[in-house]
Amino acid sequence: MKRELRLVKGGEDLGSERDPLAAEAEELVRGAAGQGALEAVDHEALLALALGDEAASFAPAECEAAAALRDALAGAGEHPLAELAGALRALHAPAALAPRTHAALLERALSRHAAAAVEAEGEPQPRSDGHGASAASALARAAEGEPVPPAGRARTSPKRRAWPFVALGTALAAAAALVLVLTSGAFDRERRTGTPTAAAFIQARSTQALFDPAQPFPARGGESERMDRIARARAADLRANRYASWGVR
């Protein structure tokens, strides 16, 4: 499904432009950006669920919709929002290409390069087992972990002319693979842990800021009130840290 996308301003009214799916997506994105207000019932339910209240209940229709979306996200079934979620996920943390997909893309690209080069020379199309294609196939097989047979000698001039493209394509693919492999570790770790870095959390620190600097503590009494104030302030910090660990801000 292809859609035309354009940037919209924060408060822009899209009027009749939007279809129902776009409206729902817009609402979700605005909500994620903190622009929408939760209804009191939803807020209570989310809070209860987050704090471990197993008895938190939702309307049956909501449960069904959630189950359908969950199945679609897991690859079983379809849901209009699953495509959007997949696109957002790919934007945030793209997954590594499956070896078979990678091999197919390489083969198609290299074959096209070889064919275009030969065509530009005005010479006949090389056979499907030509050098460029066979190199691509070998690369594809190597990517899948299969043994690669030794390459044969180039016998004709069109094949010789295709070699620089093959070499260039191979070098580019290798460089891309290297970058992908070296960077995918960070993505994997983030996905595995699901937690942001320490900088996202509120740090333990002096409580002096909770008290009026111009009002020294009395020599006698007042400890309980001070403990109340410290515990209340840090309880709020802990709540914020919990949300941060869940990726919510």
Partner: peptide, 8 residues
């Protein structure tokens, strides 16, 4: 990463 030190 799960238990960064020094946080509340």
């Amino acid at each position: 990463e799960r238990c960064p030190e020094g946080v509340v």
